[in-house]
Simulated scan of single mutants.
Amino acid sequence: MSNPEVLVKRVGTTLRKIRQERGMSLQGLAQRVDVSKLTLGKIEKGEANPSLSVIWKIANGLSIPISVLLNEDQTVKISRKNTGNKVVSANSACILEPMFNVSHYGSIEMHRAYLKPNSEYFPGSHQSGVVEYVTVMEGEVKISIEGEMFYLHQHDSIKFNGDREHAYINSTAAPAVLHFVMTYTNT
């Protein structure tokens, strides 16, 4: 999607729908996801463009994949690089591009991630039941999982429980491209 305003509206509409389906007030949602009521209200109205960290907080608090918030209703979809929705990390080190959006709070999602040279991306930990499968498509990446470092080169893959503190580190002068598959067993 090339129009950020449409994406912002979609996130807001989807968030409001989920909140209302679960019978939650805006204040209740704010307490559950650790994002201010004011910010959530602006997101629901399409008046705020949430950062990747805010979208993760919301998704984790609601126990849903982040791609649910970016849902598009299409039966057949081709995901071409650099043409989909994009969410940028707070430090701008990582651009996440959901590949195929799930509907009805699905249990799997796929993303491309573009990690800038000499940068770090700390998503923290996700809700219980999340398993991450990560493949390095281009470049080299170090992945820190609760302080233990794993070195991955092009086409290497790793699987780990996403509810553990983790970070992605690109200490090279070239960008890295990652492919994420995330499964949610508690959805």
Results as ranks from 00 to 15, higher is better:
I43E: 00
S103L: 10
A174F: 10
N82Y: 12
V131F: 05
G23P: 11
V87Q: 08
N161C: 09
K86M: 14
V87G: 01
F150M: 07
V6T: 11
D73E: 15
R32D: 03
L178K: 03
L7M: 15
Y105L: 15
T39S: 14
N170H: 01
D73M: 07
F122K: 12
G28I: 06
R16L: 10
S2C: 04
N60W: 07
V141T: 09
Q154F: 01
R32I: 06
A93L: 02
L52T: 00
L40W: 04
E140R: 14
N101L: 13
K45H: 10
N118F: 07
L70I: 10
G23D: 10
G124C: 05
V181S: 10
Y133Q: 10
Y151S: 06
P98W: 00
S103R: 11
L152W: 04
P50W: 00
N71C: 12
L62P: 03
G28D: 11
E132W: 07
Q127E: 09
N3D: 13
R32C: 09
A167R: 05
I145C: 00
E47Y: 00
I78F: 11
F150K: 11
K45Q: 15
A59F: 02
L15V: 12
S171K: 10
Q20T: 13
V68Q: 13
N91Q: 01
S144T: 12
N82V: 08
G28M: 14
S89K: 00
V76C: 07
P117L: 10
K57H: 08
F100G: 01
N71P: 09
E21D: 15
F180E: 03
M99V: 00
K57E: 11
K42V: 05
T187C: 06
G106L: 01
A59T: 01
T14H: 02
I108R: 04
K81D: 09
G41H: 02
E47R: 06
L70C: 12
F150Y: 15
T14R: 09
R32K: 15
T14C: 03
V130C: 11
T39E: 12
E5I: 15
P4G: 06
N118M: 14
H126C: 04
S144F: 05
G61Y: 05
V130Q: 12
E132C: 07
S125F: 07
S2H: 09
G12N: 02
V130L: 13
Y168A: 00
E140W: 05
A113F: 05
L70V: 12
S67T: 15
E72V: 11
P98N: 01
L29Y: 03
V181M: 11
K17G: 02
E132I: 11
L40A: 01
N161Y: 07
N60F: 07
D34I: 13
D34A: 15
G147E: 13
E47V: 05
L15A: 04
V141I: 13
M24H: 06
V177T: 14
